[in-house]
Design a protein around this nucleic acid. Sequence first.
DNA 1: TCATAAATAGAATATATTTTCCATTTCTTG
DNA 2: CAAGAAATGGAAAATATATTCTATTTATGA
Lengths: 272, 272
Amino acid sequence: MSHEHPPQSQDAFLSRLTQSIDRMPRRLRQCAEFVATHPERIAVSTVAELAAGAGVQPSAFMRFCREMGFTGFSQMQKLFRQDYAQRWPDYQTRLQSLHAQGSDSAGALLADFVEAGRLSVENLAHSVDPKSLDEAAALLSTARTIHLVGFRRAFPVVSYLSYAFEKMGVPAVLASGVGGLGTRHLFSPDDAMIAVSFAPYTEQAIELAQDASARGLPVVAITDLVTSPLMRLKSTALLVNEIEVGAFRTLSATMILAMVLAVAVGARRSGS
Amino acid sequence: MSHEHPPQSQDAFLSRLTQSIDRMPRRLRQCAEFVATHPERIAVSTVAELAAGAGVQPSAFMRFCREMGFTGFSQMQKLFRQDYAQRWPDYQTRLQSLHAQGSDSAGALLADFVEAGRLSVENLAHSVDPKSLDEAAALLSTARTIHLVGFRRAFPVVSYLSYAFEKMGVPAVLASGVGGLGTRHLFSPDDAMIAVSFAPYTEQAIELAQDASARGLPVVAITDLVTSPLMRLKSTALLVNEIEVGAFRTLSATMILAMVLAVAVGARRSGS
DNA sequence: TCATAAATAGAATATATTTTCCATTTCTTG
DNA sequence: CAAGAAATGGAAAATATATTCTATTTATGA
C-alpha cells in the first residue's frame, strides 16, 4: 500500500512522515525518528551511515524510503539535495546573514544571543573548578533530601534541577517561596541545599542559604561573582558568568552547569 | 609540487585556491573557478557532475583535487560534508566511547556537556527560521495576554519566559496545571499562547495548545522535531534541537531561543 | 622549428554504494 | 496454540561513482 507518487518537496515529505510514523513497525519508525531529528543529514550521507545512525540495517532503511513513496534511497536523497544550497552556509556565514537582516529584526537578535550563549558556554569550562564540582557532587550525593533555592532569574534553574532529580529518583524539594514560609522548617542536618542566585541577589534566597548553613547543612552555591553573598558561607561555590546582550543575560551556561551537577549527583547515588 | 597535507577547513581550502588559481593550467583553472562560484555543490555532487559544470573531463577534476592537496575527490568532499552535518555523528560516537571508558569524573562530564551545549547553540542559528521568529514576535506583541504552557523539561523554559515578560511589563500567565483546571477558561480570542513541548510530548501541553488553537488563539510552538504534535496545529513553530549526552539533553539552546523571543516581543510592544 | 615536458581526453579499472533477494524471526489472527 | 502474514537481518547482485592509465594534443624554450 501507499506506493503512489513520491513527495515533491521536503514539506510534503515531512507531513507524510508525521502522518504515517505512528502506524510504522519498529525498525521503520526508528528510521523515521532519526530522519525527523536529523533531516539535514540525508543530503550528505549514504544509506549505510543513515542506517547506522538510526540503529537499523541498510535494508530496513531502504524499506523506509519505499514506504515514504520513493523508488529507493537515491530518489529520496535527490529531493534533499535539491535545496541543500539554501542552508549550506556554515555557522559563521549564517550568523553574518542573520545580522544582515537589519539590527532591529528578530534575526539579528538571534545572532547576538547565539553568539553570547556560545561564548558563555565555552567560558564555563574555565570558570568552574572541577574540584569544587566533584566536592559539590560528593556533598549532595550523601544528603537525604536536597533543598533547591532560587528565585526570579534563578528559578528556571532550580525548576530544572527539580525535574532532573525527580527523573533520577533523587529526593529534592523546591523551596517555592509561595504560600508562606516555604520549606525552612524541614531542614534537617543530614540534608543539603543548592542555592542559585545572581546579582542583584534576591534577599530571600540569601536568607534561606544562610539559615541552612547555620543549621549545619552543606550548601552548594551557583552564582556569578566572587563578591556574591553566597560566597561568604562556608559553601562550595560554582561560578558561571553569562555574557550580557543589552540588559539581558542568557541562561545557557547556567543550565548546563545545573545539568552536570544533577547528572554527577545521580551517578554517584546509583553508583555507590 | 605542492602535494603536502590537505586543507583542514573550508577556509584553508579557499585561501589555497585563491593563492594557486593564477598558476593553474586552463582546465584546472576552470575547475577552480567553478568551485569558487559554487562551493555548496561539492558536498552533494559527483565528480562527473562537477566536471560537467566546470566544462571539463572527470579526470581533469581529479587532477584538480590532487593539486589542492587531497588524495582524491572523496577526501575533498569529506571536508565539505563534515563542516556541514558530520559533526553530530562524530560527536555521538565519540561520546559513546567516552561513556564506555567510564570516565564519569565531574570534570569530564562538564567537558561533554559544554561541548554538547556549544554545538546545540550553534545549531540554533540553522534550525530556527528568522521569518517564523519575526512572525511569532508579531503575533505575540499584539496579544492582550500571553498564555505560557510547558511541563516537565519544558517548564523551566516557560518559567523563564514568565520572568522575562514580567520584567518587561508584558502581560503573561503561566498555565500551571496544578490546583485544578488551570487557566483554560481564561482563553480569550485576542490572547495568544506560547506552547513548549519536547518528545515524549506531555499530553496536557498538547491538549492545551489544541484547545487554544481551536478557540482561535494564535499559538507559537517551541518544539524539537518536525513530527511534533505541535506542528500539526496551524501554529508558528520554532525548532530547537539539543544534543543528547547519555540520556540527557541540555536546555542551553532552548533558553536562548526563549530569551530572543521574549526580547523581540518586548521590543515590539514598547516600540509601537 | 624541433625536442621535450606538461596537460588533456577518454576509456579501462577499482571501489563504493545502492538495491534486491530470501531465509529466519516476530508479530497477528482465527 | 497453530497457521499465516508481516517484518527483519544479512549477504549477494546490480549499479553508480571514483580513480588510474595511456595515447594524443598542446605548450615551452633553445
